[in-house]
């Protein structure tokens, strides 16, 4: 188990290094950093001096090493556009994105598993047919369209919920939360639903398919023959056996939810990391883009590691190495 985690950690470090290399190349070689930093009037001597001062004439590996060292200390330079340290910028936007992503993931998980189990247990009812048809919409409609449709119905026509922004927020330490005020919660509803819809339908279809598969197995038949209650069979025995693939997908999807919150954040003017990234792309604010890339890679690596460890918790067959004991 420990060896496995260490091996996975090693792989994670490797992945991060590769991503850092890509981020660094982008940072260093997409356009001229000096040109972005000094004005038109700077002389070429001034430019050369700055170049020397920033170490841009050093060999490639030295610069890369410096980039990594700085990244480890959480320094990704100064945003060209906003003239603030990138790390500060991202940290100030992070709570908004994380609150949105986790609320969506939670929605997706709860309703996805719930509907999926229901659809598997009652395969021939009208509700199941409705759920399955509805899930097609979630899978096939693009996120921005769903967002705009929700805004039209609930914000414009019904005027129940705000159409943009985060509402009022409360500062707790460096964390600015919208979960503690009514307007913050109301603002969260539409973006969270928009972002969760795709994942929800994906999880639902997965749970349903896995569940149907497991319900056909011999150990479920044997559990029935032992006279166990339906609840024990369906949830204790069947659902637990569907968890490994569900955890995998949910984990990966959580990463995507954070990474691709960009669209939802843009549609709802949500002040998160995604909208920061989009605004930075528009003006080629390379330090922010590089840092965002590193951040998303880090999120994926951490989630993958967590998922791998969760497998061990759920499935005992992975825990024991070596051949079966005894005859």
């Amino acid at each position: 188990m420990l060896a496995f985690i260490l091996r996975r950690l090693g792989q994670s470090v490797l992945v991060m290094l590769v991503v850092a290399l890509i981020a660094f190349i982008m940072f260093r070689y997409v356009g001229d950093p000096i040109a972005s930093m000094v004005g038109q009037e700077a002389s070429s001597a001034d430019r050369e001096a700055l170049r020397q001062q920033l170490g841009l004439n050093d060999p490639f590996y030295e610069q890369f090493f410096r980039f990594i060292t700085n990244a480890l200390q959480g320094q990704f330079g100064i945003s060209y556009r906003l003239q603030q340290p990138v790390t500060e910028l991202i940290l100030s936007r992070l709570p908004a994105t994380i609150e949105l992503a986790f609320t969506s993931a939670l929605l997706a998980l709860v309703f996805g598993v719930g509907f999926g189990v229901f659809a598997a247990l009652r395969p021939k009812t009208i509700s199941t047919a409705a759920i399955m048809t509805g899930s097609l919409i979630g899978v096939s409609l693009p996120t921005f369209l769903i967002g705009i449709a929700l805004i039209y119905v609930f914000a414009v026509e019904l005027q129940w919920l705000p159409s943009f922004g985060r509402g009022q927020t409360v500062q707790i330490g460096w964390w600015r939360t919208g979960l503690l005020t009514e307007s913050g919660l109301r603002s969260l509803i539409l973006p969270a639903i928009t972002l969760s819809l795709f994942q929800m339908t994906l999880i639902m279809r997965l749970v349903r398919a896995e569940m149907l598969e497991v319900l056909r197995t011999d150990y479920i038949k044997f559990a029935k023959a032992r006279g166990l209650s339906s609840r024990a069979i369906n949830f204790g025995h069947a659902l637990k056996n569907t968890l490994v693939p569900v955890i995998t997908i949910t984990g990966l999807q959580l990463g995507s939810v954070i990474a691709f919150a960009i669209i939802t954040e843009t549609v709802f003017q949500w002040p998160g990391v995604g909208s920061l990234f989009i605004n930075s792309v528009a003006v080629v604010d390379v330090p922010v883009m590089a840092a965002y890339l590193m951040f998303i890679a880090f999120v994926f690596v951490v989630i993958n590691l967590t998922v791998d460890i969760l497998y061990y918790v759920v499935d005992p067959r992975l825990r024991v190495s070596g051949p079966a004991r005894g005859h």
């Binding site: 011999d218 038949k221 023959a225 032992r226 499935d315």
Partner: peptide, 30 residues
């Protein structure tokens, strides 16, 4: 009645037991 009055044994012991629970958990539950 199932399990209490009539017990059943199936063909394949490899697939008759739930892989995620210990023998103790399955026996005690029943």
């Amino acid at each position: 009645i199932r399990g209490r009055k009539i017990g059943m044994i199936f063909q394949d012991p490899l697939t008759s037991l739930n892989p995620l629970y210990t023998i103790a958990e399955q026996l005690i539950e029943t």
